[in-house]
Write a protein that binds this DNA or RNA. Structure first.
Length: 456
DNA sequence: TTAGCCTTGAGA
DNA sequence: TCTCAAGGCTAA
Protein backbone atom coordinates (compact mmCIF):
# COMPACT_ATOMS: atom_id res chain seq x y z
CA UNK A 1 0.00 0.00 0.00
CA UNK A 2 1.38 3.34 -0.99
CA UNK A 3 1.61 6.07 1.59
CA UNK A 4 0.02 9.26 0.48
CA UNK A 5 2.41 12.02 1.41
CA UNK A 6 -0.47 14.41 0.87
CA UNK A 7 -2.43 12.85 3.71
CA UNK A 8 0.17 14.00 6.23
CA UNK A 9 0.18 17.47 4.68
CA UNK A 10 -3.53 17.80 5.39
CA UNK A 11 -2.64 17.96 9.07
CA UNK A 12 -2.21 21.17 11.01
CA UNK A 13 0.96 22.46 12.61
CA UNK A 14 1.13 21.39 16.26
CA UNK A 15 2.66 24.75 17.16
CA UNK A 16 0.34 27.28 15.51
CA UNK A 17 -2.32 25.30 13.65
CA UNK A 18 -1.24 26.48 10.20
CA UNK A 19 -1.00 24.12 7.24
CA UNK A 20 1.78 21.58 7.54
CA UNK A 21 4.47 21.66 4.85
CA UNK A 22 6.38 18.51 5.81
CA UNK A 23 8.52 17.03 8.52
CA UNK A 24 10.76 19.68 10.04
CA UNK A 25 13.11 19.20 12.99
CA UNK A 26 11.42 16.07 14.26
CA UNK A 27 7.76 16.44 13.39
CA UNK A 28 5.20 17.74 10.94
CA UNK A 29 5.08 21.54 11.12
CA UNK A 30 4.26 24.53 8.93
CA UNK A 31 6.86 26.42 6.95
CA UNK A 32 6.80 29.45 9.21
CA UNK A 33 7.37 27.53 12.45
CA UNK A 34 10.12 25.62 10.70
CA UNK A 35 11.80 28.91 9.79
CA UNK A 36 11.19 30.39 13.22
CA UNK A 37 12.69 27.36 14.97
CA UNK A 38 15.69 27.37 12.64
CA UNK A 39 16.39 31.08 13.13
CA UNK A 40 16.03 30.82 16.88
CA UNK A 41 18.43 27.91 17.25
CA UNK A 42 20.96 28.97 14.60
CA UNK A 43 21.22 32.49 15.91
CA UNK A 44 20.96 31.47 19.57
CA UNK A 45 18.19 33.98 20.09
CA UNK A 46 16.99 34.95 23.53
CA UNK A 47 13.39 36.00 23.97
CA UNK A 48 11.36 37.20 26.90
CA UNK A 49 7.65 36.98 27.50
CA UNK A 50 5.87 40.20 28.39
CA UNK A 51 2.94 38.30 29.85
CA UNK A 52 2.83 35.22 32.04
CA UNK A 53 4.50 32.75 29.64
CA UNK A 54 1.16 31.29 28.68
CA UNK A 55 0.54 33.18 25.42
CA UNK A 56 -1.79 31.59 22.93
CA UNK A 57 0.10 30.55 19.81
CA UNK A 58 -2.09 30.38 16.73
CA UNK A 59 -1.77 31.67 13.17
CA UNK A 60 -2.83 35.28 13.80
CA UNK A 61 -0.96 35.58 17.11
CA UNK A 62 2.16 33.51 16.56
CA UNK A 63 4.30 36.60 15.94
CA UNK A 64 3.29 38.25 19.20
CA UNK A 65 5.41 36.27 21.61
CA UNK A 66 8.50 34.47 20.26
CA UNK A 67 9.31 33.25 23.77
CA UNK A 68 6.08 31.29 24.10
CA UNK A 69 6.28 30.22 20.48
CA UNK A 70 9.71 28.71 20.99
CA UNK A 71 8.63 27.09 24.26
CA UNK A 72 5.74 25.55 22.39
CA UNK A 73 8.05 24.35 19.62
CA UNK A 74 10.08 22.52 22.26
CA UNK A 75 7.01 21.32 24.09
CA UNK A 76 5.42 19.67 21.05
CA UNK A 77 8.75 18.01 20.36
CA UNK A 78 10.77 19.98 17.79
CA UNK A 79 14.33 18.75 18.08
CA UNK A 80 17.18 21.18 18.69
CA UNK A 81 19.69 18.61 17.48
CA UNK A 82 18.06 18.53 14.03
CA UNK A 83 19.33 22.06 13.36
CA UNK A 84 22.75 21.55 11.86
CA UNK A 85 25.64 23.26 13.57
CA UNK A 86 27.70 23.07 10.36
CA UNK A 87 24.84 24.54 8.29
CA UNK A 88 25.52 22.07 5.48
CA UNK A 89 22.57 21.93 3.13
CA UNK A 90 20.76 18.96 1.66
CA UNK A 91 20.92 15.30 2.47
CA UNK A 92 19.08 13.44 5.17
CA UNK A 93 19.39 13.41 8.92
CA UNK A 94 19.16 10.72 11.58
CA UNK A 95 15.43 11.25 11.97
CA UNK A 96 14.70 9.56 8.66
CA UNK A 97 13.65 6.25 10.25
CA UNK A 98 11.51 8.13 12.78
CA UNK A 99 9.67 9.98 10.01
CA UNK A 100 9.25 6.70 8.19
CA UNK A 101 7.75 5.02 11.26
CA UNK A 102 5.41 7.95 11.80
CA UNK A 103 4.26 7.77 8.22
CA UNK A 104 3.64 4.04 8.60
CA UNK A 105 1.56 4.70 11.72
CA UNK A 106 -0.49 7.35 10.00
CA UNK A 107 -0.95 5.04 7.06
CA UNK A 108 -2.11 2.27 9.37
CA UNK A 109 -4.56 4.61 11.02
CA UNK A 110 -5.87 5.77 7.69
CA UNK A 111 -6.31 2.17 6.56
CA UNK A 112 -8.23 1.48 9.73
CA UNK A 113 -10.51 4.41 9.06
CA UNK A 114 -11.12 3.25 5.53
CA UNK A 115 -11.71 -0.33 6.59
CA UNK A 116 -14.28 0.72 9.14
CA UNK A 117 -15.91 3.43 7.10
CA UNK A 118 -15.62 5.52 10.24
CA UNK A 119 -13.95 8.89 10.30
CA UNK A 120 -11.25 9.40 12.87
CA UNK A 121 -9.56 12.76 13.10
CA UNK A 122 -6.13 11.29 12.81
CA UNK A 123 -3.52 12.92 15.01
CA UNK A 124 -5.78 15.74 16.05
CA UNK A 125 -4.11 19.01 15.19
CA UNK A 126 -2.72 20.55 18.26
CA UNK A 127 -3.75 23.93 17.02
CA UNK A 128 -7.32 22.90 17.66
CA UNK A 129 -8.93 21.60 20.77
CA UNK A 130 -6.18 19.10 21.42
CA UNK A 131 -3.71 21.90 21.42
CA UNK A 132 -5.71 23.65 24.04
CA UNK A 133 -5.85 20.48 26.08
CA UNK A 134 -2.14 20.15 25.72
CA UNK A 135 -1.54 23.64 26.95
CA UNK A 136 -3.88 23.05 29.85
CA UNK A 137 -1.92 19.98 30.75
CA UNK A 138 1.32 21.95 30.65
CA UNK A 139 -0.26 24.73 32.60
CA UNK A 140 -1.30 22.14 35.18
CA UNK A 141 2.31 21.14 35.50
CA UNK A 142 3.17 24.65 36.50
CA UNK A 143 0.30 25.43 38.78
CA UNK A 144 -0.11 22.44 41.06
CA UNK A 145 1.24 22.21 44.57
CA UNK A 146 4.96 21.57 44.63
CA UNK A 147 6.13 18.10 45.47
CA UNK A 148 9.46 18.48 43.84
CA UNK A 149 11.01 21.49 42.23
CA UNK A 150 14.22 21.50 40.28
CA UNK A 151 15.43 24.58 38.44
CA UNK A 152 15.88 23.71 34.81
CA UNK A 153 17.30 25.38 31.78
CA UNK A 154 15.96 25.08 28.32
CA UNK A 155 18.26 25.13 25.36
CA UNK A 156 17.89 28.87 25.43
CA UNK A 157 18.98 29.07 29.02
CA UNK A 158 15.65 30.42 30.05
CA UNK A 159 15.12 29.47 33.63
CA UNK A 160 11.88 27.69 34.05
CA UNK A 161 10.60 25.96 37.09
CA UNK A 162 9.29 22.46 36.76
CA UNK A 163 6.93 21.33 39.41
CA UNK A 164 6.07 17.71 39.65
CA UNK A 165 2.34 17.23 39.82
CA UNK A 166 0.60 14.60 41.87
CA UNK A 167 -1.89 12.23 40.25
CA UNK A 168 -4.78 14.10 41.84
CA UNK A 169 -3.77 17.35 40.18
CA UNK A 170 -3.44 15.67 36.80
CA UNK A 171 -7.00 14.42 36.87
CA UNK A 172 -9.81 16.81 36.00
CA UNK A 173 -12.46 17.92 38.48
CA UNK A 174 -15.31 15.45 38.95
CA UNK A 175 -17.01 14.84 35.68
CA UNK A 176 -19.84 12.83 37.14
CA UNK A 177 -22.29 15.47 36.02
CA UNK A 178 -21.30 14.76 32.46
CA UNK A 179 -22.91 11.41 32.20
CA UNK A 180 -23.50 11.40 28.51
CA UNK A 181 -20.90 10.70 25.92
CA UNK A 182 -21.98 11.28 22.42
CA UNK A 183 -20.09 11.07 19.21
CA UNK A 184 -21.53 11.55 15.80
CA UNK A 185 -19.56 10.20 12.90
CA UNK A 186 -19.69 10.74 9.21
CA UNK A 187 -21.24 7.33 8.66
CA UNK A 188 -24.44 7.90 10.60
CA UNK A 189 -22.98 6.30 13.66
CA UNK A 190 -23.99 7.66 16.98
CA UNK A 191 -22.19 6.34 19.97
CA UNK A 192 -24.09 7.03 23.07
CA UNK A 193 -23.40 6.09 26.60
CA UNK A 194 -25.79 7.34 29.20
CA UNK A 195 -24.61 5.79 32.35
CA UNK A 196 -26.38 5.88 35.60
CA UNK A 197 -25.03 2.68 37.01
CA UNK A 198 -24.05 0.79 33.94
CA UNK A 199 -22.51 1.57 30.59
CA UNK A 200 -24.82 1.47 27.64
CA UNK A 201 -23.82 -1.08 25.06
CA UNK A 202 -22.06 0.29 22.02
CA UNK A 203 -23.09 -1.73 19.07
CA UNK A 204 -20.80 -3.00 16.39
CA UNK A 205 -20.87 -1.81 12.85
CA UNK A 206 -22.75 -4.09 10.53
CA UNK A 207 -20.72 -6.30 8.25
CA UNK A 208 -18.77 -4.22 5.82
CA UNK A 209 -18.79 -5.34 2.21
CA UNK A 210 -15.05 -4.52 2.07
CA UNK A 211 -13.77 -6.71 4.88
CA UNK A 212 -14.29 -8.21 8.31
CA UNK A 213 -16.42 -6.40 10.83
CA UNK A 214 -14.53 -3.96 13.02
CA UNK A 215 -16.23 -3.67 16.41
CA UNK A 216 -17.16 -0.05 16.96
CA UNK A 217 -15.67 -0.06 20.43
CA UNK A 218 -12.29 -1.19 19.10
CA UNK A 219 -12.29 1.84 16.80
CA UNK A 220 -13.07 4.05 19.77
CA UNK A 221 -10.29 2.47 21.83
CA UNK A 222 -7.73 2.98 19.05
CA UNK A 223 -8.95 6.53 18.69
CA UNK A 224 -8.02 7.20 22.31
CA UNK A 225 -4.42 6.12 21.70
CA UNK A 226 -1.92 8.99 21.55
CA UNK A 227 0.07 9.72 18.42
CA UNK A 228 3.27 7.70 18.83
CA UNK A 229 5.63 10.27 17.29
CA UNK A 230 4.22 13.18 19.25
CA UNK A 231 4.45 11.15 22.42
CA UNK A 232 8.01 10.21 21.59
CA UNK A 233 8.98 13.81 20.95
CA UNK A 234 7.19 15.14 24.01
CA UNK A 235 8.86 12.69 26.37
CA UNK A 236 12.26 13.19 24.75
CA UNK A 237 11.91 16.96 25.14
CA UNK A 238 10.88 16.69 28.80
CA UNK A 239 13.75 14.34 29.57
CA UNK A 240 16.14 16.69 27.83
CA UNK A 241 14.88 19.52 30.02
CA UNK A 242 15.26 17.41 33.15
CA UNK A 243 18.69 16.23 32.09
CA UNK A 244 19.88 19.79 31.56
CA UNK A 245 18.92 20.42 35.17
CA UNK A 246 20.90 17.43 36.46
CA UNK A 247 24.14 18.16 34.71
CA UNK A 248 25.12 20.72 37.28
CA UNK A 249 24.57 18.42 40.20
CA UNK A 250 25.45 14.84 39.47
CA UNK A 251 25.58 12.13 36.88
CA UNK A 252 22.49 9.96 37.32
CA UNK A 253 22.70 6.16 37.26
CA UNK A 254 21.10 4.07 34.51
CA UNK A 255 18.41 3.00 36.96
CA UNK A 256 17.77 6.63 37.77
CA UNK A 257 17.47 7.51 34.08
CA UNK A 258 15.08 4.63 33.49
CA UNK A 259 12.96 5.80 36.43
CA UNK A 260 12.73 9.27 34.92
CA UNK A 261 11.70 7.77 31.62
CA UNK A 262 9.11 5.57 33.36
CA UNK A 263 7.89 8.61 35.26
CA UNK A 264 7.35 10.56 32.04
CA UNK A 265 5.64 7.55 30.47
CA UNK A 266 3.33 7.43 33.48
CA UNK A 267 2.33 11.03 32.76
CA UNK A 268 1.38 10.03 29.25
CA UNK A 269 -0.60 7.06 30.59
CA UNK A 270 -2.52 9.31 32.99
CA UNK A 271 -3.12 11.74 30.13
CA UNK A 272 -4.36 8.89 27.94
CA UNK A 273 -6.70 7.64 30.68
CA UNK A 274 -8.14 10.99 31.60
CA UNK A 275 -9.08 11.77 28.02
CA UNK A 276 -10.33 8.29 27.21
CA UNK A 277 -13.86 7.17 26.56
CA UNK A 278 -15.68 5.96 29.73
CA UNK A 279 -12.84 6.91 32.06
CA UNK A 280 -13.57 10.61 31.83
CA UNK A 281 -17.10 9.89 33.01
CA UNK A 282 -15.88 8.50 36.33
CA UNK A 283 -15.56 10.46 39.54
CA UNK A 284 -12.01 11.48 40.37
CA UNK A 285 -11.93 9.13 43.37
CA UNK A 286 -12.65 6.15 41.17
CA UNK A 287 -10.21 7.38 38.52
CA UNK A 288 -7.45 7.57 41.10
CA UNK A 289 -8.24 4.15 42.56
CA UNK A 290 -8.18 2.54 39.12
CA UNK A 291 -4.91 4.21 38.12
CA UNK A 292 -3.27 3.48 41.46
CA UNK A 293 -4.22 -0.14 41.00
CA UNK A 294 -3.02 -0.74 37.45
CA UNK A 295 -0.29 1.82 36.67
CA UNK A 296 2.49 -0.76 36.60
CA UNK A 297 0.51 -3.10 34.33
CA UNK A 298 -0.13 -0.23 31.92
CA UNK A 299 3.49 0.89 32.09
CA UNK A 300 4.75 -2.58 31.31
CA UNK A 301 2.17 -3.02 28.57
CA UNK A 302 3.37 0.26 27.05
CA UNK A 303 6.95 -1.02 26.91
CA UNK A 304 5.98 -4.46 25.63
CA UNK A 305 3.52 -3.25 23.00
CA UNK A 306 6.11 -0.84 21.59
CA UNK A 307 8.56 -3.70 21.38
CA UNK A 308 6.04 -6.01 19.67
CA UNK A 309 4.77 -3.40 17.19
CA UNK A 310 7.94 -1.53 16.28
CA UNK A 311 10.90 -3.15 18.04
CA UNK A 312 13.81 -4.99 16.48
CA UNK A 313 15.27 -8.25 17.65
CA UNK A 314 18.26 -7.77 19.92
CA UNK A 315 17.41 -4.25 20.98
CA UNK A 316 15.01 -2.51 23.30
CA UNK A 317 12.99 0.32 21.77
CA UNK A 318 12.52 3.09 24.33
CA UNK A 319 9.56 5.46 24.53
CA UNK A 320 11.87 8.23 23.26
CA UNK A 321 12.46 6.31 20.04
CA UNK A 322 16.02 5.43 21.04
CA UNK A 323 17.21 1.86 20.95
CA UNK A 324 19.27 0.05 23.57
CA UNK A 325 21.25 -3.06 22.79
CA UNK A 326 19.84 -5.90 24.87
CA UNK A 327 23.35 -7.20 25.41
CA UNK A 328 24.16 -3.86 27.10
CA UNK A 329 21.06 -4.12 29.27
CA UNK A 330 22.01 -7.66 30.31
CA UNK A 331 25.62 -6.78 31.07
CA UNK A 332 24.63 -3.92 33.40
CA UNK A 333 21.74 -5.70 35.08
CA UNK A 334 21.72 -7.63 38.33
CA UNK A 335 20.10 -11.04 38.68
CA UNK A 336 16.60 -9.70 39.40
CA UNK A 337 16.56 -7.30 36.46
CA UNK A 338 18.09 -9.88 34.14
CA UNK A 339 15.36 -12.35 35.07
CA UNK A 340 12.64 -9.70 34.61
CA UNK A 341 14.06 -8.73 31.23
CA UNK A 342 14.23 -12.37 30.18
CA UNK A 343 10.59 -13.01 31.11
CA UNK A 344 9.58 -9.77 29.42
CA UNK A 345 11.34 -10.81 26.23
CA UNK A 346 9.62 -14.19 26.30
CA UNK A 347 6.29 -12.39 26.57
CA UNK A 348 7.23 -10.09 23.67
CA UNK A 349 8.14 -13.15 21.64
CA UNK A 350 4.78 -14.84 22.38
CA UNK A 351 2.87 -11.72 21.36
CA UNK A 352 5.07 -11.24 18.32
CA UNK A 353 4.46 -14.78 17.11
CA UNK A 354 0.68 -14.37 17.19
CA UNK A 355 1.08 -10.91 15.64
CA UNK A 356 -0.88 -8.93 18.22
CA UNK A 357 -1.87 -5.62 16.65
CA UNK A 358 -2.65 -2.08 17.84
CA UNK A 359 -6.35 -2.77 18.03
CA UNK A 360 -5.83 -5.68 20.39
CA UNK A 361 -3.37 -3.74 22.56
CA UNK A 362 -5.88 -0.88 22.74
CA UNK A 363 -8.57 -3.28 24.04
CA UNK A 364 -6.18 -4.84 26.55
CA UNK A 365 -5.37 -1.40 27.96
CA UNK A 366 -9.04 -0.83 28.72
CA UNK A 367 -9.43 -4.31 30.22
CA UNK A 368 -6.53 -3.51 32.53
CA UNK A 369 -7.74 -0.02 33.43
CA UNK A 370 -11.35 -0.92 34.16
CA UNK A 371 -10.68 -3.44 36.88
CA UNK A 372 -13.83 -4.06 38.94
CA UNK A 373 -11.81 -5.97 41.54
CA UNK A 374 -10.36 -2.72 42.87
CA UNK A 375 -11.74 -2.14 46.39
CA UNK A 376 -14.21 0.56 47.40
CA UNK A 377 -15.15 1.76 43.93
CA UNK A 378 -18.11 4.10 43.92
CA UNK A 379 -19.24 3.16 40.46
CA UNK A 380 -18.37 -0.51 40.56
CA UNK A 381 -21.19 -1.60 38.27
CA UNK A 382 -20.21 0.83 35.53
CA UNK A 383 -16.55 -0.17 35.71
CA UNK A 384 -17.46 -3.85 35.56
CA UNK A 385 -19.70 -3.17 32.60
CA UNK A 386 -16.93 -1.33 30.72
CA UNK A 387 -14.49 -4.17 31.32
CA UNK A 388 -17.05 -6.66 30.04
CA UNK A 389 -17.58 -4.53 26.94
CA UNK A 390 -13.82 -4.26 26.36
CA UNK A 391 -13.45 -8.03 26.68
CA UNK A 392 -16.42 -8.48 24.37
CA UNK A 393 -14.92 -6.14 21.78
CA UNK A 394 -11.58 -7.93 21.95
CA UNK A 395 -13.28 -11.31 21.61
CA UNK A 396 -15.31 -10.11 18.65
CA UNK A 397 -12.23 -8.59 17.02
CA UNK A 398 -10.12 -11.73 17.49
CA UNK A 399 -12.93 -13.90 16.12
CA UNK A 400 -13.04 -11.72 13.01
CA UNK A 401 -9.29 -11.65 12.51
CA UNK A 402 -8.38 -15.20 13.45
CA UNK A 403 -9.66 -18.55 12.34
CA UNK A 404 -8.78 -20.18 15.64
CA UNK A 405 -12.09 -19.35 17.31
CA UNK A 406 -11.53 -18.79 21.02
CA UNK A 407 -7.86 -19.79 20.93
CA UNK A 408 -6.46 -16.35 20.20
CA UNK A 409 -8.63 -14.59 22.75
CA UNK A 410 -7.68 -17.12 25.45
CA UNK A 411 -4.03 -16.77 24.49
CA UNK A 412 -4.22 -13.00 24.90
CA UNK A 413 -5.80 -13.34 28.35
CA UNK A 414 -3.02 -15.72 29.36
CA UNK A 415 -0.45 -13.18 28.20
CA UNK A 416 -2.27 -10.53 30.23
CA UNK A 417 -1.97 -12.71 33.29
CA UNK A 418 1.78 -13.11 32.69
CA UNK A 419 2.09 -9.34 32.23
CA UNK A 420 0.39 -8.72 35.60
CA UNK A 421 2.68 -11.16 37.31
CA UNK A 422 5.73 -9.48 35.77
CA UNK A 423 4.62 -5.99 36.68
CA UNK A 424 4.07 -7.06 40.31
CA UNK A 425 7.65 -8.33 40.42
CA UNK A 426 8.93 -5.12 38.83
CA UNK A 427 7.02 -3.09 41.43
CA UNK A 428 8.57 -5.08 44.27
CA UNK A 429 12.02 -4.55 42.80
CA UNK A 430 11.41 -0.83 42.42
CA UNK A 431 10.14 -0.58 45.99
CA UNK A 432 13.29 -2.26 47.32
CA UNK A 433 15.43 0.14 45.31
CA UNK A 434 13.37 3.02 46.62
CA UNK A 435 13.90 1.90 50.23
CA UNK A 436 17.64 1.72 49.64
CA UNK A 437 17.56 5.24 48.17
CA UNK A 438 18.74 4.25 44.70
CA UNK A 439 15.87 5.78 42.76
CA UNK A 440 14.62 9.36 42.59
CA UNK A 441 11.89 10.33 45.07
CA UNK A 442 9.03 12.80 44.83
CA UNK A 443 7.76 11.88 41.43
CA UNK A 444 4.61 10.35 40.01
CA UNK A 445 6.23 6.93 39.87
CA UNK A 446 6.89 6.96 43.61
CA UNK A 447 3.48 8.42 44.35
CA UNK A 448 1.89 5.49 42.54
CA UNK A 449 4.14 3.00 44.26
CA UNK A 450 3.27 4.35 47.70
CA UNK A 451 -0.43 4.78 47.00
CA UNK A 452 -0.84 1.16 45.99
CA UNK A 453 1.02 -0.09 49.05
CA UNK A 454 -0.83 2.18 51.44
CA UNK A 455 -4.24 0.74 50.58
CA UNK A 456 -3.19 -2.74 49.55
C1' DT B 1 11.69 39.60 11.78
C1' DT B 2 8.63 36.81 9.27
C1' DA B 3 7.31 33.42 5.99
C1' DG B 4 7.11 31.65 1.39
C1' DC B 5 9.86 29.89 -2.10
C1' DC B 6 14.37 28.12 -3.79
C1' DT B 7 18.59 25.22 -3.69
C1' DT B 8 21.04 21.38 -2.10
C1' DG B 9 22.35 16.63 -1.53
C1' DA B 10 22.05 11.95 1.04
C1' DG B 11 19.46 8.04 0.78
C1' DA B 12 15.82 5.11 -1.27
C1' DT C 1 16.44 9.39 -10.84
C1' DC C 2 13.43 10.87 -7.42
C1' DT C 3 12.19 12.29 -2.80
C1' DC C 4 12.17 15.36 0.86
C1' DA C 5 14.20 17.62 4.84
C1' DA C 6 17.84 20.39 5.56
C1' DG C 7 19.70 25.56 4.90
C1' DG C 8 19.46 30.00 2.11
C1' DC C 9 17.35 34.00 0.01
C1' DT C 10 14.40 37.88 -0.10
C1' DA C 11 10.03 40.72 -0.40
C1' DA C 12 6.95 42.44 2.82
Amino acid sequence: MEFRHGAALEELCPVCGDKVSGYHYGLLTCESCKGFFKRTVQNNKKYACAESRECCIDVPQRKRCPFCRFQKCLHVGMRLEAVRADRIRGGRNKFGPMYKRDRALKQQREALIQASGFRIDSSPPMGSSTQQRDLTFTADLHSVPVLHCTPLHTAQNHRISYQHPSLCSLLPPDSAGVNQYQCASSSNWTIKSEHANSAAVIYSRPLSPRGPRMPQLVIEFVRCDPDELQLQNKIAARLLQEHTGWEKHSDPSNLCLMCHMADQTLFSIVEWARTSIFFKQLKVNDQMKLLHSCWSDLLLLDIISRQVLYGKEGSLLLVTGQEMELSDVASHAGLTVASLVQRGLELVEKLHIIKVDRQEFACIKFIILFNPDVKQLEDHQFIESVQEQAEGALLEYTLCSSSHLLGRFAHLLLCLSELRSLSALAEDYLYCKHLSGEVPCNNLLMEMLHAKRSWA
